[in-house]
Amino acid sequence: MQKHAAQKGIALVLVLWVIVLLSVIAGAMSTVQRTGVAMTGNIRQEREGRALVNAGLNFMALMLERRTRPIEDNPWPTDGRLHPWTFAGKTVWVGAMPENARIDLNQANEQILQSLLQSMGLEEEEALAVRDAILDWRDPDNATHAQGAEDREYRAEGRPIGARDSIFLSLEELQQVAGITPELYKKLAGALTVDARQRTVDPAFASREVLLAIPGVTPAEVDQYILERQQALAQGLPVPPPAFGGAFLKKGKNTRFRLFAEVDLPGGGKAQGEMVVGIETKTRKGYMLLQKKFGKLQSFGRAALPEEEG
């Protein structure tokens, strides 16, 4: 009798464990299902956001035809700020600025490169070595600058590829240059380009990082100029020239533009993208596309809506 009762007790424990196990499995399956639904929703939102960003970029490319019109006749000026555009019932923030707001990696002279690298936090000697490596990468010869790097130095580091000995074809190529760490590249990327093809920089659109690369300039001078520039933009006035920079800060001929698009996503996220186009030639498909990417923008931010002004 006791043996029979013990067997019943064991069976009851087993049944309880089976119930617990089934509950755990059911809970796990429910969690997986909820996660799958959430992931599907996130993917759908991301794809929808990217499609709207693409639409905004293409629209802004069309609006470049209006770039010389007065501000009252062009709601989407190339002033570096994002302006609202309604498409498919959604608000897409679009904008553009001349690409020569950045320092061209293939055109910058030794002094500008040295100053830029030091403004990014490198000590003078370290900046000199990186600068010389950049010069060796882009020049056509195999002669090594004082602290630079040509094929021999790259082979000594165990790298299979030496210096290109030609111009940079993309900004990402800078990561292959001796002395360029991932952290340094991240700092430099927003200040540089390979698409401006100009030795000068347009100060009206240059970022703080670019302006700080001017030899001899102080952070206080740069911040004061940025403040004056913001005030002029807010009032619809021409941006004044800075009191520093000399011949390096010059408007130049704007034939290449960086276009921006941004969309707010449910939940507080954003879909963002930008592309660079050259308008010096036009094909049946439109302007020449030089680069395109999705990710964080470096525009001047969103312009104030009419009801927000004042």
Rank of each mutant, 00 (worst) to 15 (best):
G162P: 02
Q107P: 03
A108N: 08
A101C: 12
A133H: 03
N109G: 11
L117F: 08
N142F: 15
E99F: 00
Q118C: 09
D165G: 07
S119Y: 00
I112Q: 11
S115P: 00
V130T: 04
L122P: 02
S166Q: 12
D151V: 12
E99T: 09
A156V: 08
I134Q: 00
I161W: 01
Q175I: 01
A108F: 07
R159G: 03
A101M: 06
V130P: 07
N109R: 08
D139P: 04
A133S: 13
A149S: 14
V177P: 01
A143N: 15
E110R: 15
E99I: 01
L116H: 06
L128R: 10
I161Y: 01
A96Y: 06
D104K: 03
S170F: 00
Q175F: 01
G179C: 02
S115V: 05
A96R: 03
P160Q: 05
L122N: 03
P140Q: 06
A143T: 15
L135R: 08
A149H: 08
I167Y: 11
R138K: 11
R138G: 01
E150A: 14
E150S: 13
E150C: 12
Q147S: 15
D151E: 15
E150W: 13
A127H: 00
E150G: 11
R102H: 13
Q107R: 15
I134N: 00
E126L: 03
H145R: 13
R164T: 07
A163G: 07
I167A: 13
E110Q: 15
G179M: 05
E153H: 06
R155P: 06
N100P: 12
G158L: 02
D165H: 10
T144F: 10
R155V: 14
G148I: 11
I103R: 02
D151H: 05
E123D: 15
T144I: 11
Q175V: 00
A127Q: 01
D136H: 01
L128Q: 10
P160A: 06
I134V: 12
D104R: 04
A129V: 06
L174D: 04
I180Q: 09
D132K: 03
L169T: 09
R138Q: 08
F168Y: 05
A129T: 07
L117N: 06
A178D: 05
E153G: 11
E173D: 10
Y154Q: 07
A129I: 06
A163S: 11
N100M: 09
E173A: 12
Q111P: 05
H145F: 14
L174T: 10
D141H: 14
Q111C: 02
D104I: 04
S115E: 04
R159V: 09
L169P: 00
A129E: 04
G158A: 02
I134G: 04
R155F: 15
Q175G: 07
N106I: 09
A163F: 01
N109E: 12
E173R: 12
R131W: 01
L128V: 01
S115N: 09
L117D: 04
V130N: 02
D141T: 15
M97I: 07
M97N: 02
